[in-house]
Design a protein around this nucleic acid. Sequence first.
DNA 1: CCTCGGGGTTAGCGGTCGTTAAGGGGGTCG
DNA 2: CGACCCCCTTAACGACCGCTAACCCCGAGG
Lengths: 195, 195
Amino acid sequence: MVTRREQILAAAAELFARHGFHGVGIDEIGAAVGVSGPALYRHFRSKDAMLGEMLTSISETLLDGGQRRRDAAAPTDVLRELIRFQVDFALDNPSLITVQERNLGNLTDPDRRRVRALQRRYVEVWVRAIRDAWPDLDEPTARAAAHAAFGLINSTPHSRHLGRDRMATMLREMATGALAGMATGLPDSDLSTAS
Amino acid sequence: MVTRREQILAAAAELFARHGFHGVGIDEIGAAVGVSGPALYRHFRSKDAMLGEMLTSISETLLDGGQRRRDAAAPTDVLRELIRFQVDFALDNPSLITVQERNLGNLTDPDRRRVRALQRRYVEVWVRAIRDAWPDLDEPTARAAAHAAFGLINSTPHSRHLGRDRMATMLREMATGALAGMATGLPDSDLSTAS
DNA sequence: CCTCGGGGTTAGCGGTCGTTAAGGGGGTCG
DNA sequence: CGACCCCCTTAACGACCGCTAACCCCGAGG
């Protein structure tokens, strides 16, 4: 069963993704779920609270999924599984990904702190996995690499076109290649060693 | 010499990047350059026109730089040069990159058409270079790969920390690795062939 | 010296937005 | 049958925002 709250959050996510938080009015969100305007205040304390709950739940989902997969995978498979997880999430929830990337700055201060903390912990899961795969990599580089990998994988809302499976495969290959390229310090490498 | 217009655009870009187009008021932009509020209308027709000119000039800069480098490089070096160009631009203009990624949807319809057209041509430069490097790659895949590479490289505003040169090197390695990983179809590869 | 135009000021208008107020309709349970 | 509660409605308020109006300062050119 899908509660009214979830229905509203899904509609709001799509609108926020397309027009930005301040570019969407309460009335438009209401209209998107078939009610109009102030009815939303029966379900949320404020518009800020909608964004807060949206971003918090995304961050919790990512952190939880990341930890779960890390714990379930063989040590050599952790990074592979994290990549697969992030790719699947991004492809299945493009508007959530977009909102999380663009609208962190529109959160209330306490909400932003909460979300930031969750994000940091999720990034830490990645950093650990990266450094386990390449032990002589320093931590700041690993963190920057994790952010770059997110940028790659989360670029998916700006593409479409390719079809979910081909896209997933391609993103996994590119993320894998990106991390390998960084870790092995591609001299300036094989852009012409074609197949 | 830096004109008033450019000064205003730079300040506006930083504010738009941080708070989103609708999250920034005319008065704040004015305050950021030391004048207050409606003074900006001596230099721009409207707030929309600021964003329009900002995004148009970014797109023109990228397209022009991309074409220039393509024409100047040896065929086998084109992709390498494009990567280097995009990395440098992203690292040197983080707020412009952020605005271009987040605020395309806030443009006027004619402005958006203009910007979209320029962006499409820039992407085409990349697509051509990618397919020259791996001739048996189909065009949609190459285009999706280009977008993913942009996502990777443009993630730089969300990182910082690492220092411009290390960051540039790392992003080039990752972008190179990502494209190579896609083109050669990494089976599910060497995440453990450490250095 | 006077003019004049570029670039600035403050005041205010019209519209929009988030939010609250006030009220109503329809299931469910005692 | 009646009380209640959940969910919705429309009306309205206060704040804010983009933009215009009206006015001013000042440096350069005849």
